[in-house]
């Protein structure tokens, strides 16, 4: 049975009177699927991801999580902390903190003991293969290492949905392969739902379903939600 986890219902997002990033978008993401979102620059891919991440409000329409409108959800902090994990296109790691601290900072505010937090960080660092770099700071890392650190941070609170905005955009082929392998493992083994924005056709084909956005509208869907 396909269980909707995130839905966009007639979503419109405009920035001022002239810029419409999304226009009447309807989309359902089911639990456990890997959805790729492609499109040209400015098509509205990242805006859709931001709305799913509750970083912005739609101008009209609704974003639903398990049927509940985010606009009526009292504690969006909890949603951002526990339901979704976001990997930003430019990773947005804090440059003055080590890889470990960048991951752990996402867990601050949860009722976890220090020991549990330290253990969870060690687990994530090992999962993304950054054990040797864990006390380094972002400026000392390669692009691939930074992106892996960002994924580890996004996974820190074991989110139900991983929202990744062009995570392979700045990576070389070897790191792209490694990163996609990591996402596949995550999707397959822990049934983490993945919504990944990409403009790379090869990367998009690794997902179970691909939607194409153009000028703020979904114009093409390949594959079915699984």
């Amino acid at each position: 049975m396909q269980e909707p986890i995130l839905q966009a219902v007639a979503v419109r997002k405009a920035f001022g009177p002239d810029v419409v990033a999304l226009d009447r978008v309807d989309l359902t993401v089911v639990r456990g699927e890997w959805l790729a979102v492609s499109g040209t620059s400015g098509a509205g891919k990242s805006t859709l991801l931001q709305l799913f991440a509750a970083l912005d409000h739609p101008t009209s329409g609704r974003i639903l999580y398990r049927g509940q409108d985010l606009a009526s959800m009292g504690d969006l902090d909890h949603y951002r902390r526990r339901v979704v994990g976001v990997v930003f296109q430019l990773h947005h790691l804090l440059p003055h903190l080590s890889v470990r601290d960048n991951i752990e900072i996402a867990m601050m505010g949860r009722h976890l003991s220090r020991r549990d937090r330290v253990a969870r960080v060690s687990e994530l660092v090992a999962a993304v293969g950054l054990e040797a770099q864990q006390i380094r700071r972002p400026p000392e890392l390669s692009g691939g290492e930074r992106q892996r650190a960002a994924i580890a941070r996004a996974l820190a609170n074991s989110p139900e949905v991983l929202l990744a905005d062009e995570p392979t955009g700045s990576l070389d082929p070897e790191n792209v392969t490694r990163l996609l392998g990591l996402l596949e493992t995550l999707n397959r083994e822990s049934r983490t739902t993945i919504v990944m924005v990409t403009h790379d056709r090869d990367v998009a084909e690794r997902a179970g379903r691909l939607i194409h956005i153009d000028a703020g509208r979904i114009v093409e869907v390949e594959g079915a939600a699984s």
Binding site: L55, D77, R81, R82, V86, F88
Partner: peptide, 8 residues
């Protein structure tokens, strides 16, 4: 970023 990570 901190708000996106769920910081109140």
């Amino acid at each position: 970023v901190l708000r996106a990570l769920g910081w109140s």
